[in-house]
Amino acid sequence: MTDIRHAAPSRLSGLTPTHFVAIVTLGALILASMGQVAPSPQQLATGLPGMVDLVGRMLPPNTEPAFLWRVGVRILETFQIALVGAAIGIVLSLPVAWLAARGVSPLGRGHYVFKAFVSFLRTVPDLVWALLFVATVGLGAVAGTMTIMVDTIGFCGRFFAEAMEDAEKDPQDALTAIGARRSSILAGAILPDIAPSLTNSSLFALEKAVRSSVVLGLVGAGGIGQELKVAFDLFQYRNASTIILVIFVIVLAMELITDKLRARIQ
């Protein structure tokens, strides 16, 4: 019998010179950046008492009925911005995703144009969209709603398109053989198949919309964020702490509700 013995492979067999150079470069970049933008121990030492002082001035939160009523009205407006913006965005995402989905789009190779369009909507931050809409339609909730709408198309357009690309192919082939048009295949086979995925993405979009809508007011696009900006600008820290707590409760409640709905869909 032939006795064949193999030596153990090198511990670093997977590490190519290119990988090694990349790791060292990344490490050097992080260290150099830390020296320039990370807080120094001295800054932390002086900043911490300032933070404690600010928190002290925020307590106790303002619970005057008139103020709470004003916050309630602003929260309702925030929720309306999120709900309407997300709803319109989700509906518009469906045709956009259809046109962007590879192998499903009626445009063939032209689907790249819509894929790029969705990527563009997604890569521009929501506060930048808000600034653009405030400049075009003016201060207030309408600018906020348009921001959430565009942000939702960027988010849902991508996930809807991916779900359409991954939809089961067999029923689509069957409907094609029957003579169904592309739009019929979308409505008859693809959408029913990906309905749980669409619902999931839509709930995430709604949750994201609520989180985004609370900060849009910082740039004048309506909602509770506007109230928060005024409170900080006028050094009304007790008002600010009330608003922060209300935002925390609203976002938490939204996450709990969408989590429960998602669990039911699974």
Binding site: D170, P171, D173, A174, I178, G179, A180, A195
Partner: peptide, 25 residues
Amino acid sequence: FVFQKHCLVRRRTVLSNVVHGFFGT
């Protein structure tokens, strides 16, 4: 045309799947 795999839309009712046979009309 009947395929090797039934190729039904699984989340739809049986009746809706049969009605799909009228696509193209």
